[in-house]
């Protein structure tokens, strides 16, 4: 159980961080499987899978897979590691998205998470019948309502709602199914979801791309927040936790992870990289890290060189002590009512 003494560790692939054309563009499923299985063998908490909507003005990465379908497939070839897919609030309807992730969570036996970006992508709006795009406020307010609906739908069925009583003819207990009946500014969603309750209560909500106004949404709703390195200072994480407290949550119920890109330098000085992570973690600037890999082989270096050093210093747990992503992150039984 993570209790503040050990750091949360996520890894992700970010070919756009590669210095030139990424060597891994168009990774096939077996290569991605090897990457995730290697992270699992090392006992890392989760893999974050980006969605390939190209960054405005950037190279098209030509990933072959959409992230939620990729997570479904990866769930069948792994057993412990958390699997988090990015999915846009512009590309999906809240009911469909809630349903997809609820289903991923059952397929993975409680290891799924949704990475919701709070950064609008104008290119995406243009492909989803919104050529006019969104104003900043509009996107954020809509996303906030969207996230609330998704989290509400995830709680539509009580954990003990399904009875499976063949003889009595009672499949579920009607008292334990709840309509959402949401009517808001942007959406109207009756519910309930047609997927059973998550094995980990609800899928883990990861939030990224946070502007200052979006911080309040994260403090209220997120399980995990990803912050970029340059913006990280102890005050930021502390501020998020204070705000979470103000929303009636325990500070431990919100994990702040810092995005760190692995560079070629770690092979030269793994100790210095470990020092940097340790200093950041001990100063309470974050609860852990999302280590971004520009190419798959960078994972070998991180696991082979840096992870043993972090373990030696007692900063990282060895292996999994539980079954769900929420438990890996020390979020099980936190403030979800």
């Amino acid at each position: 159980m993570a209790n503040g003494a050990t750091m949360c560790l996520a890894v992700s692939l970010s070919p756009e961080a590669a210095p030139s054309d990424p060597p891994d563009a168009g990774l096939d499923f077996s290569q991605l499987t090897r990457f995730v299985q290697e992270a699992e063998a090392a006992g890392l908490d989760m893999v974050l899978l980006g969605d390939s909507a190209p960054v405005a003005g950037g190279l098209n990465r030509q990933m072959r897979f959409e992230a939620t379908t990729l997570v479904a497939a990866l769930a069948t070839v792994t057993s412990r590691i958390g699997l988090v897919a990015a999915a846009s609030t512009v590309a999906h309807q809240p009911y469909n998205l809630a349903r997809r992730f609820a289903s991923l969570d059952i397929i993975s036996h409680g290891r799924a998470g949704w990475n919701a970006s709070m950064m609008p992508d104008p290119r995406e709006a243009a492909n989803f019948s919104r050529p006019e795009g969104f104003s900043g406020d509009d996107f954020r307010l809509r996303a906030e309502e969207f996230i609330g609906i998704v989290q509400g739908l995830w709680k539509g069925w009580d954990a003990d709602a399904l009875l499976f009583d063949k003889f009595g003819g009672r499949f579920f207990d009607p008292e334990k199914m709840h309509l959402l009946d949401h009517k808001g500014e942007y959406f109207s969603v009756r519910g309930p979801l047609n997927v059973a309750r998550s094995p980990q209560d609800t899928p883990v909500l990861v939030m990224s791309g946070l502007s200052e106004p979006a911080m309040a949404i994260a403090a209220r709703t997120a399980d995990v927040v990803l912050l970029d390195e340059p913006s990280i200072e102890p005050a930021k994480a502390g501020d998020l936790k204070r705000r979470a407290l103000a929303f009636g949550r325990r500070p431990e119920a919100l994990k702040v992870l810092m995005n760190v890109t692995v560079s070629a330098a770690i092979t030269a000085a793994p100790d210095l990289f470990a020092d940097r992570l340790e200093e950041c973690f001990r100063s309470k600037a974050c609860d852990g890290f999302n280590i971004a890999m520009p190419f798959t082989s960078a994972l070998d270096d991180f696991i082979g060189l840096v992870l043993p050093e972090l373990r030696r210093r007692g900063l990282v747990q060895s292996g999994y002590s539980a079954a769900t992503l929420r438990a890996h992150l020390g979020l099980a039984g936190e403030d979800r009512q």
Partner: peptide, 23 residues
């Protein structure tokens, strides 16, 4: 009350289900 006497109110979302079956 009708729904609770059948098994069709919950199940996998089919695209994620088929993605799992694909591999």
């Amino acid at each position: 009350n009708i729904a609770s006497q059948t098994s069709r109110s919950i199940g996998f979302e089919p695209i994620s289900l088929l993605a799992a079956l694909a591999v």
